[in-house]
């Protein structure tokens, strides 16, 4: 287990390094470098050239990458092109909100989909199973942003049960107004729960038909004990394996949810930075969010390895 964990984590480190190179190359090579962007097309060519020298953009690519990576490793994320604020400050400010959102979602995600999948699997082909399956299939085909807009329209604007936006609130207000979290988390959960519950359902059905469960039933093991001790651990495997592949979807969901509910988190900061072409902020935030998504994948992979040790690191 420890050896597997070490290999998986070192793979993630390689992936993160590859990603850092990719992010740097894409921002460095694409048209419109930071100097042109900073002046918003109103400056003379000399001004742009001057700023380019000042920012070091006229130096060879390899040198610039070495500088950037070196600063990154020592914790210096650079300064924002808009406002000149240190990027570290922007990141730190926005990260807490996103982390809170992600943690609440992660805590609810697995138990919720496991229970749903188990209930559906135990009643395979029954009315409840068919109804839930149909709802999940439909829900899974609706884009996150449509789901978020409908949730706002129905539950916030029509019914007025929950606030529709965080415009006047920050992470600190959550203790007094926990209702703020309900709709964003519900939207984040909706599609991922569908995906996972279907896997847990399939796992439950496979486990129920396995020889050892049939044998345990013949030996007279009570149903509750049978489900909890013999079916559940094996039913969880496909779902947790699927969980490792949902990092991308969850991150996309966070971007959408933060935009729709005007949540002042990392995703909002990223979208703003892309629109303002604030290269250092985009670099830092994409790398950070990717690191979080990678960490999520690693965690799910390790749990799935613990449940079913036959899976390899790759392939």
């Amino acid at each position: 287990m420890a050896r597997h964990a070490l290999r998986r984590v070192s793979l993630a480190v390689v992936q993160l390094a590859a990603l850092a190179i990719l992010i740097f190359l894409l921002t460095a090579l694409l048209p419109g470098d930071a100097a042109e962007v900073a002046f918003n097309e109103q400056a003379s060519l000399e001004q742009v050239a001057q700023l380019r020298t000042q920012l070091g953009l006229d130096r060879p690519l390899a040198d610039r990458f070495a500088d950037w990576a070196g600063a990154l490793l020592s914790g210096d994320l650079g300064t924002s092109l808009i406002g000149g604020e240190p990027v570290g400050g922007i990141v730190a400010r926005s990260l807490a909100t996103t982390a809170l959102l992600a943690c609440v979602t992660a805590v609810l995600l697995v138990p919720l989909s496991l229970v749903l999948g188990l209930v559906m699997g135990l009643r395979e082909g029954g009315r409840l199973d068919r109804a839930l399956s149909a709802v999940m299939l439909a829900l899974n085909s609706v884009p996150d942003f449509v789901l978020a807009l409908v949730a706002v329209a129905v539950f916030a604007l029509r019914l007025g049960w929950f606030p529709s936006t965080w415009l006047d609130a920050g992470a600190a207000d959550l203790l007094t107004r926990p209702g703020l979290l309900v709709l964003p988390v519900a939207v984040l959960l909706a599609r991922t729960v569908c995906l996972l519950a279907r896997q847990f359902r399939a796992g439950t059905i496979a486990a129920l038909h396995a020889d050892y469960v049939v044998q345990a039933r013949r030996l007279g093991v009570p149903r509750g004990r049978l489900v909890l001790r013999h079916v559940l651990p094996n039913a969880a495997v496909p779902g947790v394996q699927e969980l490792a592949r949902t990092g991308d979807q969850l991150l996309g969901g966070v971007l959408i949810v933060e935009a729709v509910f005007a949540i002042p988190g990392s995703a909002t900061a990223l979208v703003d930075a892309v629109q303002g072409r604030d290269v250092p902020v985009v670099q830092a935030l994409t790398l950070l969010l990717a690191a979080v998504a990678l960490a999520f994948n690693v965690a799910a992979d390790l749990v799935s390895h613990r449940l079913a040790p036959r899976t390899e690191v790759l392939r």
Partner: peptide
């Protein structure tokens, strides 16, 4: 190694330029 890269992040980076 490139498999788990979140797609919207790459689009964000490309969208800058």
């Amino acid at each position: 190694i490139l498999l788990p890269i979140p797609s919207l992040l790459v689009i964000s980076v490309v969208g800058v330029g």
